[in-house]
């Protein structure tokens, strides 16, 4: 069971949280303008990396707030957690700089 550092509440056990999938997959501003391919990419394509992964968690049984985390999917260690709207440090998640 992971130990997750909620940016609002501090470290809590995984069973208090819900996983929210990959982070920074923003809903397109105008979905109707997208091609089927582009829409399907939004719906279904995920980076699924072996390595650092930016992901969403929700502290469902705590503050109930969504937040983001960077976790290494090989070791399951968290690199950082941060609030929605914040950008992770570039050294934590190189893709943020792209």
């Amino acid at each position: 069971m992971l130990l997750i550092d909620c940016p609002y509440c501090g470290k809590r056990p995984e069973i208090e949280f819900s996983y929210g999938g990959e982070a920074h997959v923003a809903r397109p501003a105008d979905p109707q303008a997208l091609s089927d391919d582009a829409w399907a990419a939004y719906l279904y394509l995920r980076s699924n990396p072996k390595g650092r992964h930016a992901e969403r968690w929700r502290h469902t049984h705590g503050c109930a707030r969504f937040f983001n985390a960077v976790r290494d999917t090989v070791s399951d260690f968290f690199v950082t957690t941060y609030k929605v709207g914040e950008t992770p440090p570039a050294e934590a998640w190189p893709r943020a700089a792209e």
Partner: peptide, 13 residues
């Protein structure tokens, strides 16, 4: 409720 919270907190804060 979880779906609504998801959109409200992360897409339309």
């Amino acid at each position: 409720l979880a779906l609504m919270e998801d959109y409200l907190q992360t897409e339309w804060p």
